[in-house]
């Protein structure tokens, strides 16, 4: 474990909690893409299938449990508990265009052609594009609530920090996972536009509004 990975995990965890609290407290999922949250639930499910077979550490196992549980809770709140506030008309990204290519790619490019490894690879590829429905929805509605932009910032920063974690691990642990690194780069690049808006607008107290 290194400081970058730890801060990355904390950032990821806080993003998940910010979203959970935003929906639960405001009893509304307005402006939130249910499709992205569905994709995140798939990402965690396919990535953590080794939850019971491969014990790394208490930290690792407990974080996995929290991620999986909170992603399902978020999907449940959006599609069930507060579905009356779900803005389906603006959450129209075609997720099949994300799931199919990443599934095919995980069969073609992976570290090991075994079910668990292919599912892990699919999860890595899918995570890199899972935020697209949410970013698409923000661009369609032209704006995002400030709390939603904090959620997106924390979520984007987590994988950016992981990039530094991989530099660190390459330097000091001879660890190198090209699949995770390339997908992490793609994921971070997708946030660049949002990072620019967040830093130039939200941090100055303005509302996040995209040029419609």
């Amino acid at each position: 474990m290194n400081i970058f990975r730890f801060l990355g995990d904390i950032s990821h965890l806080s993003a998940i909690i910010i979203l959970l609290l935003k929906i639960w407290k405001s009893r509304s999922c307005a402006g939130i893409s249910g499709k992205s949250q569905l994709l995140f639930a798939i990402v965690f499910t396919t990535r953590y299938l080794d939850l019971f077979t491969n014990f790394i550490s208490f930290y690792n196992t407990s974080m996995k449990v929290v991620y999986v549980a909170s992603s399902y809770a978020t999907v449940w709140m959006i599609y069930s508990k507060f579905k009356a506030t779900y803005d389906g008309n603006h959450d129209t990204f075609r997720v099949e265009f994300l799931i199919v290519p990443t599934a095919i790619l995980s069969f073609l490019v992976n570290h090991d052609f075994t079910p668990l490894e292919i599912l892990w690879t699919f999860s890595i590829y899918l995570e890199s594009v899972a935020i697209l429905p949410q970013l698409f929805m923000v661009s369609k509605t032209g704006e995002a609530e400030t709390i939603t932009s904090h959620y997106l910032f924390a979520l984007g920063i987590y994988r950016t920090l992981y990039l530094f974690n991989w530099i660190w691990r390459y330097q000091f642990e001879e660890f190198f996972d090209l699949i995770a690194i390339v997908a992490g780069l793609v994921q971070t690049v997708l946030y660049c536009d949002f990072f620019y808006l967040y830093i130039t607008k939200v941090l100055k107290g303005k509302k996040l509004s995209l040029p419609a």
Partner: peptide, 10 residues
């Protein structure tokens, strides 16, 4: 490749 089936990152 990294510990195949032994991914230690979240």
């Amino acid at each position: 490749p990294p510990g195949v089936g032994k991914h230690d990152e979240l």
